[in-house]
Design a protein around this nucleic acid. Sequence first.
DNA 1: GTCCAGGCTCTTT
DNA 2: AAAGAGCATGGA
Length: 286
Amino acid sequence: MKSQVIVKKNENLSLKQIAESGQSFRWKEQIDGSFIVTAMNETVQLIEKNNDLIIKGTSEELFKKKWSHYFDLGRNYKKVIAELKGRDQYLDAAIEYGKGIRILNQDLWEIIVTFIISSNNNIPRIKNSIEMLSQKYGSYIKTMNGEDYYSFPRAATLSQVKIQDLRACGLGYRDKYILKTSQMIAEGIIDLKEIKNMSRKKAKKELKKLFGVGNKVADCILLFACEQPAAFPVDTWVKKVLAEYYDFHESKQEKIDAFVEDHFGEFAGIAQQYLFYYIRKTENLK
DNA sequence: GTCCAGGCTCTTT
DNA sequence: AAAGAGCATGGA
């Protein structure tokens, strides 16, 4: 069965920029520049052609149900950018440079695990760990371009895995975080459905009860999986941006929150993605 | 060999 | 409340 969906897009959707923006670790670039993406128990191929986004391997119905939301197509990024522009020169430059970035709406459980793994870690290694977890504990979905793709494993599955088997996925000392957090979710100690309905502040407090989730990871979870565009993750890169370009050196969360809300406003998290992408691109070149 | 990576937990002040 | 140590692992 062959099926695909074609969507009209504008400059505020660049597959390459989204893939390099560090929010998803399961986008695999192909030789022809397309991307094979696994999310929500599906695997699709994404192709950008002029003003079209082609999604191969899904149906019109599944597009409406899942992928449209995944790509945040309900949000007008022109309006977001208009709201963010003119606040300062550095952000303006970052937006101009990374205007094809969008915030993907990803699966909450997958994002929790992914960003626990991300702590004090590097991107290639994060990708590798998630790939191994999926291959070993996910379900086979399909083969595309000669490669097999697997869904992200469920909490109930991971909660039963032996700690040394998790360690074998390259998680390092984070193995115990993943195991304990899986158990907390599987046992219903933390209810993920409830978190999505909470205020940002309350949801963050709840998320931080999970082993391995601190301020930064909680903000990533809120931004990438809970539709909280004001959540502003502060990692080593953003810290550098704040210090060097905003002359902001506080480390207390309370002070950071106040500064971020005042300076970036309701779409602070989206601004953060532009800043993160820009600083890494201009200073790292990796 | 040392340093660092989308930090966190635990301990000590 | 705030600051510091320790943490797995691979790549630069």
